[in-house]
């Protein structure tokens, strides 16, 4: 039971990650694959951010020193937040590039379904 209380949030992240992975490897539609990649990405970000959380902590924005109780404030770890900010922006850049490639594939093949594309390549 304490395992569930302590690690349940990590397991939910992993469930989310597996939904993303399933969408990427099982769907034929390329736009759907990129949506799966986005789900996967959010789950990884969620995993990192959840490791930086401290129960009873506050967001890492400093409380002014002269405020009462400022010395006892516990701040959640800022490092995962910084790393994940970078990851979100890079993730959008890769999404944009992936979607541009999908548009290009649509131009060349007339479809974005992977099985049809592979079939076309085979018959050529």
């Amino acid at each position: 039971m304490s395992q569930v209380m302590d690690h349940g949030i990590y397991w939910l992240c992993i469930v989310l990650m597996m939904i993303g992975l399933y969408t990427v490897i099982s769907r034929d539609n390329l736009v759907k694959k990129i949506m799966g990649l986005n789900i996967f990405q959010v789950s990884v970000i969620m995993f990192y951010v959840s490791m930086g959380k401290i129960s009873g902590g506050t967001p890492p924005i400093l409380v002014p020193k002269d405020q009462p109780g400022a010395a006892e404030v516990v701040y959640s770890n800022p490092l995962p937040h910084v790393l994940m900010l970078t990851a979100i922006v890079v993730g959008v850049a890769t999404t944009a590039l992936g979607l541009a490639l999908v548009v290009r594939i649509q131009e060349m093949y007339g479809t974005v379904e992977e099985d049809e594309i592979i079939e076309m390549d085979r018959t050529e």
Binding site: N38, V42, I45, M46, V49, S50, G52, K53, I54, G57, T58, P59, P60, I61, S76, P80, H81, M84, L85, I88, V89, V92
Partner: peptide
């Protein structure tokens, strides 16, 4: 969820970008 996990900067970036 990010806001609840104290990651406010991540939350608004995700809301704007994602």
């Amino acid at each position: 969820l990010f806001t609840l996990m104290d990651a406010v900067d991540v939350a608004f970036t995700e809301a704007a970008v994602g």
